[in-house]
């Protein structure tokens, strides 16, 4: 455990600048989103936008689309917009492929030539996978609350704080899931570029499958393989609870993947 702690400190030290920049930028984005949502609400733009949506689009996306065109929907954009999710997936892929980078650079030789169990390297990555997205999402949530405080609607019509927590928890769970899967790839690879390419490319493909499945019924069974299928932020915006089953699938997959990563890294040649 001591070795894992030293490695966490070491990894965190190396990532702190990138994490701070990402957390700061996304928090600021949340503040701006809240301000933009407030402005749109003041101008009555949400109703106008909703009336412009063609009927067939409404039919395809259902009430979720209309929920997007609300203060809460815009405020929640940061928790589901493809660009933000891609950045966060990029973060977990970077963290999860650290073992591959260390093997490639030879740092793993220096570390594992000490009396350090291989499990410590994977445990470090698992802790980092839990911690890094949590810190960034916490900063985003702080940005959301700051935005609400600065420019939110009157107390009665403001989105409840629980919505922010649900969005944050759902997003963290989907990132933890993909982080776990990426860790298996990262512990099995010799080259970070390959590991990151496979993990990032697969995430992009699965995200696409999930998006397509919302409008194209034949691929809905395949979409179940996508972790993004189990994160529906617009349902949360509409007031639905965070489904425990979906959360269980995401966190269960993360746990199983991390366990597999321990086995893979223990058995491999460095």
């Amino acid at each position: 455990m001591r070795a894992a702690g030293v490695l966490v400190r070491h990894s965190m030290g190396r990532m702190k600048t990138a994490l701070a920049v990402m957390a700061g930028a996304l928090a600021l984005f949340q503040v701006l989103l809240a301000m933009a949502a407030a402005e749109l609400q003041r101008q009555g733009t949400f109703e106008q936008l909703a009336s412009l949506v063609p009927a067939f689009v409404r039919e395809l996306f259902g009430t979720a689309l209309l929920s997007m065109m609300s203060f809460s929907g815009i405020m929640a954009l940061g928790y589901y917009h493809v660009a933000i999710v891609a950045v966060l997936v990029g973060l977990v892929v970077a963290v999860a492929t650290e073992p591959a980078a260390e093997v490639e650079a030879g740092f793993a030789d220096l570390v594992l030539a000490q009396a350090v169990p291989r499990e410590a390297v994977v445990a470090r990555s698992a802790v980092m996978l839990a911690l890094c997205p949590a810190l960034v999402i916490a900063a985003m949530s702080a940005g959301t609350f700051a935005g609400l405080w600065l420019a939110g609607p009157a107390a009665g019509s403001a989105p409840p704080p629980r919505l922010v927590w649900k969005l944050a928890a759902g997003l963290w769970a989907v990132l933890a899931c993909w982080g776990g899967v990426s860790l298996v790839i990262g512990t099995a690879s010799r080259r970070r570029a390959v590991a990151a390419g496979v993990a990032g490319g697969s995430a992009a493909a699965l995200m696409l499958v999930d998006y397509l499945s919302r409008v194209w019924k034949p691929i809905r069974p395949i979409a179940r393989l996508s972790p993004f299928h189990y994160y529906n932020p617009l349902d949360l915006v509409m007031g639905k609870p965070l489904p425990p089953g979906d959360l269980g699938i995401l966190l269960g997959t993360a746990a199983a993947a991390i366990a597999l990563a321990f086995v893979v890294f223990r058995r491999r040649d460095i």
Binding site: R14, A105, D109, L110, A113, A115
Partner: peptide, 14 residues
Amino acid sequence: RALAGYMPGEPGFY
């Protein structure tokens, strides 16, 4: 490994 000091042929420091 607790009893060994190691110098690799290609030191892989960050």
